[in-house]
Simulated assay, not measured.
Amino acid sequence: MLQLPEPSQIKKKLVSLTESYELCRQITAKFSKTFYLGTLLMPPEKRQAIWAIYVWCRRTDELVDGPQAQLTTVETLQLWEKHLKMIFSGHPFDNEDVALVDTLRRFPIEIEPFQEMIAGQQMDLYHSRYETFEELQLYCYRVAGTVGLMSSSVLGVNGDKYSVPWQENQNRYIPRDEAIALGIANQLTNILRDVGEDAQRGRIYLPLEDLEKFNYSQEDLLEGVIDERWCSLMRFEIERARQYYRDAERGIRFLCRDSRWPVWAALMLYKSILTVIEANKYDVFTKRAFVRIPRKILYLPVAWLRAQVL
């Protein structure tokens, strides 16, 4: 089995903390422009922490979905989990780890969601189809719902709700389920946007029971057939994703005030990809759905208003 060196044996010279956070910023800005725009609305300490978390998640995802994915095995993921435990023990191994180690010192983040994400990547090693939505939901939770849990400790929970004396000893409501719902909503959006790309790799993430429900075959999907069956299927899947967004929206008011605007913005921007898919007449085989910059800018004041009143 592959071995990582023990912390005392690490001799690699790593970048400074400032350089590590800048590296994480650059990676986030390059690979997730919509998400990055939302983080710019956060206070500096929170946005840096979110960048560090995002980069770890991206590196984890690339193990099974990146250029070298064909080389990834269960042993690779076991080694990656050992790498994770080193980070949580305060020992960075790579330049990107320096920022994450600092983030873990600043915010009370647990290791379990990170481990669940690795388990989700392991599912990708063995599954190229999902029979039911329940199976897909577990996958979405592991690879994306966990991101909501990781981020929750950084975003923080509103303390104003229990500011009066007789409420001081009451427990604050932690919007855990809503955070998971937002992650699942984002992942379902990714799946709908990337149907064509995934099909080229022989992957179908849409539940096979849903295809059967609309009399649309796997062969139809792999061939990129767009007809009324496909449009009906996509309308069904888009509504399911939107329901998860609605579930997530109910938790935003419980967040710290300085986190509400960026979360509303990120939610609205990502949710709008579904509207673009509709505008493209559900052609996710030859057209990639993305939100243009002018429309992104228009969403920001609406998100700010919602953060104030909802």
Results as ranks from 00 to 15, higher is better:
Leu155Ile: 10
Asp124Leu: 06
Lys33His: 11
Arg129Glu: 09
Arg172Cys: 03
Gln137His: 15
Glu223Ser: 15
Gln167Glu: 13
Ala199Gln: 08
Glu22Ala: 10
Arg229Trp: 03
Gly90Ser: 09
Pro108Gln: 04
Tyr141Thr: 02
Met86Ser: 14
His91Thr: 12
Gly38His: 05
Thr18Tyr: 10
Glu237Phe: 06
Gln3Ile: 08
Leu4Gln: 08
Ile180Asp: 01
Glu228Met: 14
Arg25Gln: 14
Leu269Trp: 12
Ala185Thr: 01
Pro5Ala: 10
Pro294Leu: 09
Lys271Trp: 02
Cys140Gly: 07
Cys231Lys: 15
Gln115Cys: 12
Val98Asp: 00
Ile109Asp: 00
Ile293Met: 10
Pro43Met: 04
Glu168Met: 13
Val147Lys: 11
Thr34Gly: 07
Trp80Ala: 05
Leu136Phe: 12
Asp247Glu: 15
Glu131Pro: 03
Trp230Ser: 01
Val147Thr: 00
Phe133Val: 11
Lys85Trp: 05
Ser163Glu: 12
Thr39His: 08
Leu221Ser: 10
Phe93Cys: 15
Tyr162Thr: 13
Ile191Met: 10
Ile204Trp: 08
Pro113Val: 02
Tyr36Leu: 00
Ile53Cys: 07
Glu45Phe: 07
Leu2Glu: 13
Arg242Tyr: 00
Pro44Met: 00
Asp97Ile: 04
Glu239Ser: 08
Arg59Val: 10
Gly38Cys: 11
Lys11Asn: 13
Ile111Gly: 07
Lys82Gln: 15
Tyr21Gln: 06
Glu223His: 13
Asn158Pro: 00
Ala144Asn: 11
Ile273Thr: 04
Lys271Ile: 05
Ser217Gly: 01
Lys281Ala: 14
Val157Asp: 04
Cys231Ile: 14
Trp166Ser: 14
Arg201Asn: 08
Ser128Met: 13
Pro165Ile: 13
Cys24Pro: 04
Pro7Val: 07
Arg201Met: 14
Asp65Ser: 11
Leu233Ile: 06
Glu75Trp: 12
Lys161Gln: 12
Gly251Met: 02
Leu138Thr: 15
Asp247Leu: 10
Arg58Ala: 08
Leu155Asn: 01
Asp97Tyr: 10
Ile184Thr: 04
Thr103His: 01
Gln115Thr: 13
Leu155His: 03
Leu211Gly: 01
Pro113Asn: 02
Gln48Cys: 08
Arg306Asp: 02
Glu81Trp: 08
Asp210Trp: 15
Arg193Phe: 06
Val263Asn: 02
Ser163Leu: 13
Asp210Lys: 13
Leu269Phe: 12
Val154Lys: 03
Ala179Arg: 07
Arg306Glu: 11
